Amino acid sequence: MSRASRLLTLMEALRRRRRPVAGATLAEELGVSLRTLYRDIAALQAQGADIAGEAGLGYVLKPGFTLPPLMLTVDEVEALALGALWVGARADSELARAAEGALAKLAAVLPPDRAELVAAPSSLVGPGGPSAQGDAHLKPIRAAIRGERKLALGYVDAAGAKTKRVVWPMAISYFDATLILVAWCETRAAFRHFRVDRIETAEARPERYPRRRRALLADWKAEVARERPFS
């Protein structure tokens, strides 16, 4: 591996981690000696990378530092383009517009060979329409998820019964035929899944729910894994 490639790989290794990582761990990951790792860290710092830490304590890339688009590999560009194309074809209108804008920005800052992969990707999204959904409710639902705020729902179940729920929204899950809101339901005191196309009203409440969304998601994933263990 050339030194330039090694520096890019080191930046990516730091970017993936939120907490300080030991120099020995980074050196092993890159296949270099500790002395070389320390020199590479110093070189990146001299070039403007905001890396905190020192030998013996570990290193962390401070929040807010963004990688130049030139660091994207061909496969990374392809993955981003495919994801945006899928969102543009299958997601709701708000995210579809966002995906189109993201692709345009990506193509504008990439070198010509990478930009060509955005204009004419080798991976395409197969036939299929958008999931059944109510676009009007997705904006307040997303706002509640991002703000970790409670959400008041008017919901119609499969039997046609109408209920009022206060939930802690955690995520919107995309399936081929529908969208599912994953939430903690105060009425049931349990995790519940709500079809977005059956939501009649969705109103974000001012109060935040008492637990962090990341912790709720971890508990939900653990519950799903217990109920549907992999064979």
Rank of each mutant, 00 (worst) to 15 (best):
M1K: 15
A4Y: 09
R6C: 09
R6D: 11
L8Y: 03
L8K: 12
M11N: 02
M11K: 06
M11E: 06
A13S: 12
R18W: 04
P20I: 01
A22P: 03
A24F: 02
A24Q: 06
L26E: 14
A27N: 12
L30R: 13
G31R: 01
R35H: 05
R35N: 07
A42N: 06
A43V: 09
L44S: 03
A46T: 08
A49Q: 07
I51W: 03
I51R: 02
G53F: 04
G58H: 03
F65N: 06
F65C: 13
T66E: 13
L72T: 09
T73N: 07
V74H: 08
E78P: 01
L80K: 12
L85M: 05
W86T: 00
R90C: 03
A91Y: 13
D92C: 02
S93I: 00
L95V: 05
A96V: 08
A96Q: 15
A104C: 04
L110P: 13
P111Y: 04
L117E: 01
V118E: 15
P121Q: 06
S123C: 11
V125F: 02
V125R: 00
V125E: 05
P127Y: 02
K139T: 12
K150W: 15
L151G: 10
A152G: 00
D157F: 08
K164V: 02
K164F: 03
R165D: 09
M170T: 14
M170W: 10
F175P: 03
T178K: 12
T178N: 08
T178E: 08
W184I: 12
A190I: 12
H193Q: 07
F194C: 08
E200D: 11
A204I: 07
R205Y: 00
R205C: 01
E207N: 07
E207Y: 08
R212D: 15
R212T: 15
R213D: 02
L216G: 15
L216Q: 14
L217Y: 06
A218F: 13
D219R: 15
R228W: 15
F230D: 02
